[in-house]
Computed example of a mutant assay.
Amino acid sequence: MSRDMTSATTVGPPDTSGISMRPSVRAATPADAEGIIQMRSQYVLSEPLSEEWVRRCTAELAPRLAASGDARAFVIEAPDGSMASCALGLIHPVLPAPAYPKGVAARMHAVATHPDMRRRGYARAVVTALLEQLHTEHVTLFELHAGEEAAPLFRELGFTGTAALMRMTRLEEPATLRSQESGDGLPGASEDPGWMPPELYAETVLKATCFACVYFTDEDDRPLQLHSVYSPAHPWQLVGGTMDPGERPWETAVRECGEETGLAIAGLPRLLATVYGLPGAEWPYSTVGMVFDGGQLTTEQIRSITLDPREHDKARVLPLAECEQRMPPRDFARLSAVAEARRTGVAAYFDAWDWGTE
């Protein structure tokens, strides 16, 4: 797991009076994510990460270091403000057992110390702080993969097994809980039987797919619609589509508009409607959508539309009254709500976009 600990017995550097200096350990924040990834890359992994992978890992770790995330880390800073040492653990759910009744475990993912800062007890300090924090969060199963040089330290801290796979369980009650229950007035974490790791809780909440569309009209306020080549159930559609990972709704609307029509949207977004649908036989997730105002298009702009033949084969403008005969009732109801929102300036809320109700 780590290539930074050359001895299990390390001492702090003496100060000018010959007294050992204790390292200052603090909990890591999302702002420390890149430093932790760089330390792991340089001093833990057998091959350093590329710049691209450092960036990707940093983006992944940063939100997980937030209070609601599943990562916990402690760091020590060097005098120049750089990272001298760090220990990172990742919390994950496991099936409960007598030794870990909460069904929560933590993997010691990385322990690293800068070469210039070794043999000062830094690794022991950050690992100890991390273990104590995890224990207050009811983690009783700890796992890690350690190198031979680091194994003695982890054995001293309570881990057993081989260096290749070491495990530790701690069943004693956290000191903070003991203090709270004894009534001594000291702050402590309260028992919360409903708490679960974020990634486990995420499996219990509503799932939804999101989309964003743009509502265009011609200069006579007739809606522009595209004819689908793949969806006979919804033959005429607004310009738009499903959001890609990392996109915001307006970004999706702009991207889909360019891909489906070749048109570029200028200006700030103006929301016309929000759309919601319950899951059904056609799709197992709820659907959440936003429809933005694309404004009026000139005849030249409409003629310049370039369709993606894999998605649409026609673009048309028709008076709203004539659209009703060519669309399913649910599709026309949504189109009418969006048109009314454009006319009145009051955003529409349309929550009848359910799957499988036609």
Rank of each mutant, 00 (worst) to 15 (best):
W195E: 06
I19A: 15
T357E: 10
E340W: 03
H135M: 02
R167N: 05
D351K: 05
G12Y: 06
E132A: 13
P223S: 07
Y100F: 10
R255M: 04
S82L: 09
P93Y: 02
H135Y: 07
V127P: 04
R178N: 05
R120N: 07
Y276L: 09
C210R: 14
G12A: 14
T274Y: 00
P174G: 04
H145F: 06
I36C: 00
M243K: 08
H92C: 11
A31E: 10
T209L: 11
P319Y: 08
A212W: 02
M39S: 12
T160E: 11
R330W: 07
E47L: 12
A105L: 01
P198Y: 06
L224S: 12
C210F: 15
V275T: 12
A106Q: 07
V214C: 11
V346N: 03
E51Y: 00
R248N: 10
Q42R: 13
L131H: 05
D15Q: 09
L224F: 13
D221S: 12
V94S: 04
R120S: 04
A71N: 07
R107H: 07
A273S: 11
M117E: 04
A212V: 08
L268Y: 00
D354Y: 04
E300V: 15
L307V: 14
M21H: 06
V94L: 13
A151T: 08
E51V: 09
A337P: 04
P23W: 07
P174A: 02
S231E: 14
D116N: 07
H234T: 14
L206A: 13
P319H: 10
E324F: 10
P14N: 09
L278E: 15
G258V: 01
G161R: 02
S179C: 08
A123K: 00
L141M: 14
A106L: 12
R342P: 05
V239N: 05
E149H: 07
S50R: 01
L318P: 05
